[in-house]
Amino acid sequence: MGLKIAVTLAILPALLATVEPALANEPDRPGAITALAYVDPPFMDTDGIHQRGIAIDIARELFTRAQIPYNLIFVPPKRANTFATSSPGNCVIATARSQEREAQLAWIGPFLITRHAFYRNSNSPIRVQALSDSSEYRVGTFLGSGTEEYLEGMGMTVDQAPSNDLNLKKLALGRIDLWASDTVSASLLIRETQAPVVMEKAFLTTLREMACHPATPPETLDRMRETLKSMYQDGTVRKLYGNYLGPGVKWLDIR
């Protein structure tokens, strides 16, 4: 069984409870938003029929509370960013906000707050006290995770895998010394596979935001921002994370 499938099954109870909100799939209603997602489990995932993930649930709750009609579709990540930049009415659900793209989009966030950490085999003698300690080791990341850019910017060489679960195999085979991953995905993968892998050191926290076309009406943007804020303040976002993480796996409180 592939690791990705295993993770998907692990979060199935949360998915089965999902009911399409009344405002969904109404692209023709005035003011409707086309919400663009891309496959990035456990944050965003689809089997072609169902759409699921932490970010998807946050988006659904947000649009419903803000009473904004929307249509949620999955596209490749680059296309999602291109659509949001070029076509009014489009928003990428959760993407990294960068100084370079700051001016091209209107931002609503934080949509996802994610810790990233180094993981090692539990019998490995490797210890990382500070980020620079990792420069001596072969560090595995996965393409599109965002951490490879950060680590390379810090002068490190990284070994990119096409998906995160492959890093777990590479770690077991000794092809990498450390696996750099967001803590949510890593915790779920480790739990599902029972791999003898432990977290060594957190090194980065990232924010991802919803990025909308700059022509999105300011009142719509403000409504989404205020709604998202209220979802944090009343504990909704924390609860949505909890639906996926299950007992023993923590979100920000990895202390």
Partner: peptide, 19 residues
């Protein structure tokens, strides 16, 4: 980056999450 640091501080103040 400085810009990101400001956004994180703003996010922590707005959400109350322990970033």
């Amino acid at each position: 980056g400085e810009d990101e640091l400001l956004r994180k501080l703003l996010a922590q103040n707005q959400t109350g999450e322990p970033i």
